[in-house]
Design a protein around this nucleic acid. Structure first.
Length: 535
RNA sequence: GCAGCCGUAGCUCAGUUGGUUAGAGCGCCAGAUUGUGGCUCUGGAGGUCCCCCGUUCGAGCCGGGGCGGUUGUACCA
């Protein structure tokens, strides 16, 4: 007795960082979300296909892990036969493997969708986890910008089906080849400048985060963050920076151009009216380059700036086609727009890239207002399947970050974050009557009503607390009194809680026993059904 | 990875110039109430003061190192 009982050391109940448990409310909410997304994709004619969570490491397009840091970025391990395997870090690379493996049997173009967990071995942050869910849709085997346009429209539809209002999100579109063309134009072409091009692209990607001033620093000498840490810049000169910023500065005018006869006409994005012809405009603004570009809108400006670059010109044409396709279907610039700051995945994208951004302020768990930013993204990856086959296979697709989007929907109140209604609980009043209680449960279950018998060993008060905690709609009480009368006592917990709000006195509370009624034992199922139907 | 801030009960946090047995609120469990959720009251359980080393007669507090968390930044297939 004198000895204090030492607590056994035991195993620490803890989760590695970047991983989360999901409770019933969360699962229900996300499942509803997945069903909604699936509905939109099916409507667009996409079909389901799934691949496993583990692939050969090289199939994911990842270099083999080196000895010292085999898990840098990707969770990897060696199989019995010493081949390297990895947990997938996205759903696109595995799809490319799938398509390549079943190429002859698949209809092409091949539209498919899939959802699942992906894994990244990196530092987690707010809204960033090491295991998270993605929902992808891809079209493989079509090089047409119509395939890209379709994905963008589907992305917009998905957001609205999920309850995000028009104007609270935007699908931003860019083209990797446009960026390549610009690099060339400022003298950053060629293999020897590959490293600097990367730095420049990354700087442009930060445009909406740091603004033009911050990007200017990153393109030049470098930038210091608020903790005092310094990020080295791209080291461009004033003229190059000026040109780049002119190129990527957003335009108030969302025009796109359509050929009419041998002329090109500008069409206003939203109003869908013809504006003016380019040759006229060029004369009008002679001498004022900025004003001229502004009047052209983004695509007009780009077309002009890139007129000497074949790649850039082709890219602008692609964007023009995407825009005119989505406009023709009624998707205005509030929903889908060209945005110069979209860079994305620096590795495998080869053409149009897109990103879905939420534009409304989100209040996080700590009550702070944060910009939520990107919840989905994708683009064209014509080279990915080619890694498995000799020939290039054009493909485009996008990926929704389900976990992130779920958090945003929760903040909007569009995700059922309510605790799901629990089962009807049959209390155990007398231990020797367990068989009878179990029979009640069976009758309810046979009638399709969620029900359970209390399986613990505590007294009635604890059983009531249990039912409360389960969010049970009702409990069934049968003690000796009721049993002798051939009855059961049914207590409506929701109505009871409501009634109790006005009772402050303890004696009254105990005497009142609100919202409960006796029913004949034979009418149990019927009465419960009525009670639940009243909800 | 780099930089800043922070680690005391399940949670949120007090804790004096370094000094006896480390506290509060909330939550949890039980009783008041033979068989009724809430309120109230009473009682109870719950601590490696993140870890290790050092300084000291003495460390939750001071010093060094590590680990963990968080924020910014980098990376993001």
């Amino acid at each position: 007795m004198s000895e204090t009982p030492k607590k056994k050391p035991g195993t620490l109940a803890r989760l590695p960082r970047g991983f989360v448990d999901r409770d019933a409310a969360e699962i229900a909410g996300v499942n509803a979300m997945l069903e909604t997304i699936r509905g939109v994709y099916e409507l667009y004619g996409f079909e389901a296909v799934e691949t496993p969570a583990i692939e050969f490491t090289d199939a994911l397009g990842k270099f083999l892990p080196d000895q010292d840091r085999p898990n840098e970025g990707v969770f990897s391990f060696q199989d019995d036969d010493e081949q390297w395997l990895s947990l997938r870090y996205d759903l696109t690379a595995p799809l490319a493997r799938y398509v390549a493996e079943h190429f002859d049997a698949l209809p092409k173009p091949y539209r498919s969708y899939r959802s699942g967990y992906v894994f990244r071995n990196e530092k987690p942050g707010p809204g960033r986890f090491r295991q998270f869910m993605q929902f992808d849709a891809d079209t493989v085997g079509s090089a047409s910008p119509a395939a890209d346009a379709e994905i963008c429209m589907m992305a917009a539809d998905t957001m609205e089906e999920l309850g995000i209002a028009r104007g609270d999100y935007v699908v931003r579109v860019n083209n990797r080849k446009v960026l390549d063309g610009v690099m060339e134009a400022i003298g950053l072409g060629g293999d020897e400048n590959a490293g600097r091009r990367l730095t420049v692209l990354r700087a442009i990607d930060k445009l909406d985060k740091f603004g033009p001033e911050g990007v200017k620093l990153l393109l030049g000498a470098g930038r210091k963050d608020e903790s005092g840490d310094f990020t080295k810049g791209a080291g461009l000169d004033e003229a190059q920076i000026e040109k780049l910023l002119l190129f990527v500065s957003p335009s108030e005018n969302y025009y796109y151009s359509v050929p009419v006869g041998d002329q090109t006409r500008l069409i206003d994005d939203d109003a869908d009216v013809e504006v003016k012809e380019i040759p006229l405009l060029r004369d009008l603004f002679k001498g004022d380059v900025r004003a001229y570009y502004d009047s052209l809108g983004l695509l007009g400006r780009w077309g002009h700036l890139l007129q000497d670059s074949p790649v850039g010109t082709a890219a602008v044409h692609e964007l023009n086609e995407i825009v005119s396709l989505v406009r023709a279907s009624g998707y205005g610039s509030k929903r889908i727009r060209i945005d110069p700051s979209v860079v994305r995945g620096l590795e495998y994208y080869t053409g149009p890239v897109y990103e879905v951004e939420l534009t409304f302020p989100v209040t996080n768990e700590d009550g702070l207002v944060v910009r939520f930013g990107s919840v989905a993204g994708g683009g064209r990856y014509d080279g990915l399947v080619a890694r498995f086959r000799g020939e290039e296979v054009p493909a485009t697709g996008f990926s929704i970050g389900v976990s992130r989007l779920a958090a945003a929907l929760k903040s909007l109140g569009k995700l059922g974050a309510e605790k799901p209604v629990g089962p009807v609980v049959v209390l155990v009043m007398d231990r020797d009557q367990v068989a009878e209680y179990q029979k009640m449960v069976s009758e309810l279950r046979a009638a399709g009503i969620r029900a359970e018998m209390y399986l613990g060993s505590s007294g009635m008060k604890a059983q009531m607390k249990y039912a409360d905690r389960r969010n049970a709609p009702a409990v069934i009480i049968q003690g000796s009194n009721e049993r002798e009368a051939g009855e059961v006592m049914i207590k409506d917990l929701v109505a009871g809680a409501e009634a109790a709000k006005t009772i402050t006195d303890n004696a009254e509370w105990r005497a009142a026993r609100p919202a409960q009624f006796a029913a004949k034992r034979g009418e149990l199922v019927e009465k419960i059904r009525e009670l639940l139907a009243g909800r």
